[in-house]
Nucleic acid binder design. Structure first.
Lengths: 134, 134
DNA sequence: TCCAGAAATAAGAATTATTACCAGAAATTA
DNA sequence: TAATTTCTGGTAATAATTCTTATTTCTGGA
């Protein structure tokens, strides 16, 4: 796999911040640098970078496929209200993997953990609307 | 929400086995009972049943949206090779939820845990193909 | 240096999964 | 029974992704 300018720009865009962009969001960012890059190129390179282990694909949060550049295993918190997905920098517990390998006969090499709830902002909004009703 | 024959059939189809059908798979099953049910009705009812808390939506495994009727929180094992997703009947560890609530300010009320790996069958296939190569 | 083949790209068409819309049927209410 | 609401089937529309094809860029050898 050659590191073309397009591919490098895609990689860099996803790595930039603790961000979980969709293909189209990456496209919008990269286009500022390479205005005539094709959306298909973004899609292709995202998948190739995942294949090469340089990016990870998020296990379906929302409708679109999302990517991330932080490769260390970590938890995600997801807000059901606004759709925000954030990383949690907390050492992951891998003990359950061993138990499940024994239980199922699977060979486990990764874990995808999403904690579903309300972000601080939406939490406040929801509480206020409850207060108004009662 | 009225329990119409269509809606009942959709609910029953998803509940039937430990299964994680897509909307179209549910459609194929339900059609044997109600031949002229519309795909739109299946989609609509799946979402309504999720809203009513009678079904759960799987956090994106694969391209299509998948549903399940087993409401007890549980782990999933996913095979990267064949795409199989199976339930694991093991008491879930909820202790991480509290820690993450404290860390992030989120209010957590659900957890979606997928263990990614190889199912026993694909594991064997992969090992054999490795042996052949060396 | 020049060339042939390989790899990657841009542009847009095609496909797939899902949602929106609407007119009519079924159930519920008055 | 008439009016109202809810639900359905059929189909059109949309969104996300993948495919196709012609063109461009790169690489390694003559």
């Amino acid at each position: 796999m050659r590191m073309t300018p397009q591919r490098a720009a895609v990689l860099q865009a996803v790595r930039a911040r603790r961000w979980h962009p969709s293909a189209h969001e990456v496209y919008d960012v990269v286009r500022r640098q390479i205005p005539k890059i094709s959306l298909a190129t973004v899609y292709r390179n995202l998948e190739e970078l995942v294949g090469a282990g340089k990016l990870k694909r998020l296990q379906g949060v929302g409708r679109e496929r999302r990517y991330e550049g932080w490769l260390k295993p970590h938890y995600h918190v997801c807000c059901v209200e606004c759709g925000l997905v954030e990383d949690v920098d907390l050492e992951m517990d891998h003990s359950v993997e061993k138990r499940i390998e024994g239980l199922t006969g699977y060979e486990i090499f990764d874990q995808s953990v999403e904690l579903i709830g309300l972000c601080p902002h939406c939490r406040k909004t929801v509480e206020e609307s409850h207060a108004r009703k009662s």
